[in-house]
């Protein structure tokens, strides 16, 4: 579950100029023709770096994203929800596995990526630094965060890097089920007992501000996306994704009799654009840089899992085996 948008602000584009101009031209021509770039093909260093970063962040978002919903597996009410919640969260971990493999084709090992996650060097989707207080929060994540992820991932599935694009196609097919599951759970809550309705509205109120930041800062604030767009690394702008999400889901939220906690939210019929209260980007930056309600807890869980499992990985390691990159 990844909304993109976190990655682009720090990219330095000076490096492109040192590439062989003939190769660069051929590379760009291939992308313009709609060809996929495969792991052994020539690619600019910046393209490689940017993709590793993006796929890695996506993979981290899947395993960290498994945690807020994962805590509700053991508490899911009734067999139907318990089994579905387990399968849903398992899918997210499976996505991480797929994505780490896709990133590995570019030359960074899974072990190294996990090390960088735990040390705080690599980022993941910022929304998972917020807590899932109740079962209803978990339902809102399953529905709306997965919905947001689909908007972003459907766009990126058309990107130029073959292994990432193929992984995303498989991931989107599964996310579509998550969306149905999340919607079904929210419908039950929103049309249920007064207590259930109160729980789901409270969860929506808590999650709306993080959801509005899910696709990253406004395009006015991000720079250097032009090259990434031309290389089909970034397929849609943050604002486009956000608008598309609002278009698709605000009516569905209203349909359920729920309210969105933003008095300014409305669609401007003349421009066709949604207007809303500008998200608090200072808070976004603060949280992404470590100072959110759950950053420390999320990383601590991951660190503990890595440390407790280290003996298993040592035992599996064959010292004679040579590391081979997967082909995805």
């Amino acid at each position: 579950m990844y909304g993109g948008g976190n990655v682009f602000e720090a990219t330095k584009f000076d490096d492109v100029q040192v590439e062989d101009p003939a190769k660069l031209e051929e590379f760009e021509a291939r992308i313009a023709r709609g060809e996929k770039i495969e792991p052994t093909d020539w690619m600019p260093e910046l393209y490689r770096k940017q993709l590793i970063r993006m796929i890695e962040q996506h993979a981290h978002s899947e395993i960290i994203g498994a945690l807020p919903e994962g805590t509700w597996i053991t508490r899911a009410p009734g067999f139907r929800r318990k089994m579905a919640q387990m399968a849903k969260v398992q899918d997210e971990v499976g996505h991480a596995q797929l994505l780490y493999s896709a990133a590995e084709t570019l030359g960074k090992s899974r072990e190294q990526m996990l090390t960088d996650l735990i040390s705080g060097k690599s980022k993941y989707s910022n929304v998972f630094n917020y807590p899932a207080f109740t079962w209803a929060d978990s339902n809102i994540i399953s529905w709306l965060i997965d919905a947001g992820a689909i908007v972003n991932q459907m766009a990126n599935a058309k990107g130029s890097y073959g292994p990432y694009s193929r992984a995303l196609e498989r991931i989107c097919a599964e996310e579509a089920f998550h969306l149905k599951y999340g919607h079904d759970a929210v419908v039950h809550m929103a049309t249920g007992s007064p207590k259930q309705r109160e729980m789901i509205q409270a969860a929506l109120n808590r999650w709306w501000p993080p959801i509005m930041t899910f696709f990253g800062p406004s395009d006015k604030m991000s720079t250097h996306t032009e090259t990434l767009m031309r290389w089909k690394v970034k397929m849609a702008s943050n604002d486009e994704c956000r608008q598309q999400f609002l278009d698709m889901y605000v009516p569905k939220i209203w349909e359920l009799g729920l309210t969105v906690p933003d008095p300014k939210l409305k669609k401007n019929m003349e421009t066709g654009q949604w207007e809303f209260t500008e998200p608090d980007w200072d808070e976004f930056k603060r949280v992404i840089n470590g100072d959110g309600p759950c950053n420390a807890e999320r990383l601590a869980v991951r660190r503990t899992a890595e440390e407790r499992g280290a003996w298993v990985r040592r035992a599996l390691l064959n010292p004679k085996a040579k590391y081979v990159r997967p082909l995805a």
Binding site: L67, T74, M86, A87, Q90, V93, V301, G309
Partner: peptide
């Protein structure tokens, strides 16, 4: 199912979750 998100490797995380789903089913 309590192993979901905590396995020593992702593949084991996924395996224990699969078995959890089977057992509960």
């Amino acid at each position: 199912s309590e192993w979901t998100g905590f396995g020593p490797i992702l593949e084991e995380d996924i395996a224990f979750s699969s078995m959890a789903q089977d057992k509960i089913g």
